[in-house]
Design a protein around this nucleic acid. Structure first.
Lengths: 176, 176
DNA sequence: GCACACATGTAATATGTTACATGATTTA
DNA sequence: TAAATCATGTAACATATTACATGTGTGC
């Protein structure tokens, strides 16, 4: 789905947060923090980085230590681009490409065995996710100072926790 | 994002729910009920329908009334395919390609003006969505019999409402 | 020096969107 | 009968995944 070129802005934000980052490390970010909101594999990221260097949003450098590694920095132009993107208000709610809902949607009979099966699975997935998120929260934000330094990140983590809890609660309710 | 061929199963489910449906009506389904969980445009749907006829999942027919319209029916093979898909348990939680979270993630400063701006916008989008969902609920499920006849659909609608309310509550909390 | 993880990159393919195109049916 | 909407279809392009490919650094 060719959305409106979100990926470069995400990469820009990552580089802005962590100067001197490598492509591999950027890739890793999509497997942890960002991973809940966006996915991208290295085969998407490397060409994108090239384009961004080309457009003057970032600059690359190498070191003697590691011949292959390339370190990226955001440029002032990149800063502008990032800020301009952040300034734009969101116009639409995201859609939830959610197989759980989708499958339920097609099951008509209240007594269909697959309903409790889907629900149980969903609940266990959500409980695992909740544990992970809570662990991240204590790990990344051990004190108030950490929260202060990365407030937006803190917000979305607590939001994800709240949302996950809510979904689990809902599942518990209908199980009865 | 080339996911694992979800679209044909969705279309199959739609045709199963509404025999004698046309391609245009299938397209319309993605703008109402299904639209919260999956999007597809007609340029994706028509070729897909062709493939599905070719694979024997559905059959097409025409009528004298309207020369262009093609009416689709699910075959017994299609029924099997659909049921097999519904039988498969979901293995992963969906990711939320959510610009709101993404943008917040990149804002570090607690006093950044853009945080309340993003939050206000999100709240108004969610409140609009909530109204729409509640309206759908009373419209599609006016009585208990309607619920009984389409239980899965009922579940995901109430789930969407619960989720939306939860998100609004969370936004209210942090606004203080 | 061999295995394994690191680090980057490309190619083939699948999927999705936007724009273009054409004719049929309905309605004023 | 002209305009709008219905109904289907295709083409060009954008985006994303999987698989392939290649060399580097590190630990044993």
């Amino acid at each position: 789905m060719p959305k409106k070129r979100i990926l470069p802005f995400i990469i820009l934000g990552i580089i802005n947060n962590r100067p001197h980052i490598t492509g591999r490390e950027i890739t890793a970010e999509f497997e942890t923090e960002i991973g809940d909101f966006w996915r991208a594999s290295h085969s998407q990221i490397y060409p994108e980085l090239k384009r961004m260097v080309n457009d003057g949003w970032i600059v690359a450098s190498t070191s003697q230590e590691n011949a292959k590694e390339r370190y990226y920095q955001i440029t002032s132009e990149g800063q502008e681009v990032l800020n301009h993107w952040l300034d734009q208000l969101v116009t639409d709610l995201p859609i939830h490409e959610d197989l759980f809902s989708l499958k339920l949607f097609f099951i008509k009979d209240q007594n269909d065995d697959r309903i409790p099966q889907l629900i149980n699975r969903q609940r266990s997935l959500l409980e695992k996710e909740l544990k992970y998120l809570q662990q991240r929260l204590t790990l990344v934000f051990p004190n108030k100072d950490a929260i202060k330094k990365n407030y937006g990140h803190y917000l979305i983590l607590t939001r994800a926790i709240s949302r996950t809890k809510g979904q689990i609660e809902w599942l518990k309710e209908i199980e009865e």
